[in-house]
Structures are given as structure tokens and as C-alpha cells.
Design a protein around this nucleic acid. Structure first.
Lengths: 115, 115
DNA sequence: ATAATATGTCGATTATCGTCGACATATGGA
DNA sequence: TCCATATGTCGACGATAATCGACATATTAT
């Protein structure tokens, strides 16, 4: 992942509605959520939400698939992982002090590495 | 860390010059780097860089201290860690699939948790 | 005090972003 | 086919952000 892509991804998340939509989709996993449902849930006009979803898609953070009349958006595991990996490695290699506490706080509750 | 703060921090990093400056400072650690030195290194006018540094500071990602004529900027461990923790926990709790591979890739090269 | 160096602030200009009404397209049912 | 539903696209407006010249402030040396 290069700087330009990283900037684009960070910019995609640096907006309240988009961050909210992204977090919503993270929790839904592969099941995803229809465009309209997201707009309703967040109380945002459907066309505004549409352009936000396009930006998140373009940044490689979410995917979409059609299901009859609806278009279901879901998180893009690959892109999301790439962004976080890039940020984490950037900090870790420069200053382990930053990452170690993060890992300690994230590990217990969720995912075990080397498992 | 709440959503508004997160958006502000992400926005601060979602700009090429600022992300470059941030990465530079991560690598310098507590030693930091003078404002002018950063501007010169990145070939950016000093006043433009000054406003970028102000934005990163306001987002809680970097700190500054005066050292004779220079003002030395350095990474803010606390703020940086908070942002990354928030993003990681957000994803981990929603979808462990995202975080596990990140941890696996970050752990070997750098910091060991529970150490 | 004066000058040189280092950085910050102000203000104006340009570019980009967020928002939303109006219209367009796609799907499925009557 | 005709209509309702679901979503996307276009265009315009207002708001915010990026950039940089000019000026202001702070520090140190002579």
C-alpha cells in the first residue's frame, strides 16, 4: 500500500457519516446491509449516502453486490486489513512503544495470534 | 475516544504532506525534528508546513517544544495509540478476521505483547 | 541595537468536499 | 406494459481546506 492510497482511505474514513456507515458494516460482516437500510439507519438522504458509499468503495474499504432490487454493501476485509496493517507497521517499526500497548489491549478481547 | 475526535485525527492524516510529516516524526521518536527541518526535508514552504503541523497538533498526534531558536515537533504517543486502538478494537470486535492477520504480520518484526 | 535565523499568523485565492433537489436507471410485481 | 421500489448520477450551491506572499514574533550572536 502506497502513500496515495493510504491518504485516500484515511480521507474516506475522515467523515462522520462515512465512518458511521463503515462501523455499521464492520459489525455486519459478510452479511452486509442494503444502501437504503444504511441511509435510513443513519438518517441520511439516500443520494447523499450513495455518494458516501461510492467514496468508501473507491477507497477499497467496502464492496457491493446486487440482491434483487437492493444493493448490499459489505466490508472489504482485504482493503481494511491493508490500511490497518500499513498504519500499524509504520508505527511499530518506528516506535514499538506505540504498538505494544495496543496489542495488549486488543489481544485479550478478540483475536489470538499464532493460534 | 469518540467519533468526532476520531474523524478529526483521521482527517489530519488524510493529507499527503501531513501523513509524510507524521511518518517522519514516528521514525524520530522522542528526538523529534525542527519545523524548518521537516519543511526542508519534504520540500514544502515553511508557512504551509506550519499550518499542517498545527493541524496534526490539534488532532493530538504530535507535540512541540521549544529548543532555543527551533521548535521541535515529536510524535504524541498517547494520541497516536488512542487512534490506532480505537480503529483496531472497532474492527476486532466486529470481525476478528480483520485483526488476526494484522497482528500476525506485525508481531514478529516488532513488539511482543505480554512481555 | 542591529541583523540573521526560525517559526508563526493573516489574508486572499483557488481547489476540493458535503449536501441535496431533480432526473435517470434497474428490478420485480400487478 | 405500467407502476412502485431501490439505487445511482448530475449539477449547483455553500462550506471548508490547501496554498503561499507578506508581515509579525521570538531567539541568538555580534
Amino acid at each position: 500500500m502506497d502513500i496515495t492510497t493510504t491518504v485516500k482511505s484515511l480521507g474516506a474514513l475522515a467523515q462522520e457519516s462515512r465512518l458511521a456507515a463503515f462501523r455499521l458494516l464492520v459489525r455486519r460482516g459478510d452479511t452486509g446491509m442494503a444502501a437504503g437500510e444504511i441511509a435510513r439507519e443513519l438518517s441520511i438522504p439516500h443520494n447523499t449516502m450513495s455518494s458516501h458509499l461510492a467514496i468508501l468503495t473507491n477507497a477499497g474499504l467496502i464492496n457491493s453486490r446486487r440482491e434483487s432490487r437492493s444493493i448490499i454493501y459489505s466490508i472489504d476485509f482485504g482493503g481494511t486489513r491493508e490500511l490497518l496493517s500499513f498504519l500499524m507497521q509504520d508505527c511499530c517499526q518506528g516506535q514499538p512503544e506505540i504498538c505494544a500497548p495496543i496489542l495488549d489491549s486488543v489481544l485479550p478481547g478478540c483475536c489470538a495470534p499464532n493460534s
